[in-house]
Design a protein around this nucleic acid. Structure first.
Length: 224
DNA sequence: GCCCAGGTGGGTA
DNA sequence: TACCCACATGGG
């Protein structure tokens, strides 16, 4: 990765931050709730995840211990507003089995690992892929690990910084090399890309009128 | 009724 | 490696 690409990534961050302000994603949230949210949000809007999180809280199940004891069918029913609830209930169970077996059910033990070890262990859990692992490392453990999602790829492609065919790991490395090891900045940058992607880089209806990244952005204005 | 939302894993060629 | 499919709700 060359110096100019690093500068461009930093420039994009500062322009987005200046335009949208701080996004405050998962500020001061309970780490376990963040992990549950990270698993439930797979391929579903955050609104639906909030419904499921509230349901789990109301049922007093938002702790590793309580959720471990709950029957999977009951969990599935509570997280029904999320897509693929049976599968996601199994993924929550898989994470809990891992946490109990490897870390005696203690998140502090899990988070005491280095970023690389933490990432490796999370990826060994069925149902946790790269994006979810990075989201857990960043938002639950508070360690700097960049979260690459569909918006990130789409925005960088339209800006001409990448071809779009890069692997997840390649894109993550780009950000890891360009940004300081500051979890707060990684957190904010990812949130800003999602905000920008939602508002300006819609999958089927790209538009870029008044876009904060205008000038370098190659969006085609939406046909009226 | 249709489209889409902050993915992952397993199967097939 | 690259694609395809299952998973299967709720809001606009």
């Amino acid at each position: 990765m060359n110096r100019s690409s690093k500068q461009q990534l930093l420039q994009i961050y500062h322009r987005l931050l200046a335009d949208y302000g701080e996004q405050e994603w998962w500020p001061g949230s309970d780490p376990f709730e963040v992990i549950v949210g990270a698993i439930l949000t797979q391929r579903v809007s955050w609104k639906n995840v909030e419904l499921a999180i509230d349901a789990l809280k109301d049922a007093q199940l938002m702790t590793p211990d309580a959720l471990t004891r709950a029957p999977m069918a009951a969990i599935a029913e509570l997280i029904r507003p999320c897509l693929f609830y049976n599968e996601k209930a199994a993924r929550l169970r898989a994470f809990l089995d891992f946490l109990n077996a490897r870390h005696n059910g203690d998140l502090r033990s899990l988070f005491a690992l280095s970023i690389d070890d933490l990432r490796r262990e999370l990826l060994s859990v069925c149902g946790i892929g790269e994006e979810t692992a990075d989201a857990i490392i960043l938002y639950a453990a508070g360690k700097a690990s960049f979260v690459v999602d569909a918006y990130t790829r789409r925005i960088l492609t339209r800006l001409g910084l990448i071809t779009g065919s890069e692997t997840y790991g390649e894109l993550r490395s780009m950000f890891m090399q360009a940004l300081p090891g500051d979890a707060g900045m990684h957190n904010e940058y990812h949130a800003l890309l999602v905000r920008h992607g939602k508002e300006r880089c819609l999958a089927r209806n790209p538009k870029c009128d008044g876009c904060v990244l205008q000038g370098s952005c190659k969006h085609v204005p939406r046909a009226q």
